[in-house]
């Protein structure tokens, strides 16, 4: 018996607007502020964010103090 690739239907690509990638960048930025910010970008209020999202950071496996 030889294994072969399963024939799959050809489908047309979806047109992804450029704006979608802007939103993706915003989402990644939000992820950064929720999960990673430790004072590298915000100089004053990082600790507030850090402490508020504290439990979530630990749960999601992100480095925390």
């Amino acid at each position: 018996m030889t294994a072969t690739a399963i024939p799959v239907p050809q489908i047309r690509p979806i047109r992804v607007p450029v704006l979608a990638w802007v939103v993706v960048a915003l989402a990644v930025g939000l992820l950064y502020f929720v999960l990673q910010e430790n004072g590298a970008v915000l100089t004053q209020s990082w600790e507030t964010l850090h402490e508020f999202f504290h439990d979530g950071r630990h749960l999601l496996g992100v480095p925390c103090h």
């Binding site: 993706v24 990644v28 939000l30 992820l31 929720v34 999202f53 630990h58 749960l59 999601l60």
Partner: peptide, 22 residues
Amino acid sequence: QVGGGVLATVLFAVSVSVVFGT
């Protein structure tokens, strides 16, 4: 902090889904 943690997980799921969907 418990509330913040819960909010963090929801924000995480939504942000990740924007990247995932795109």
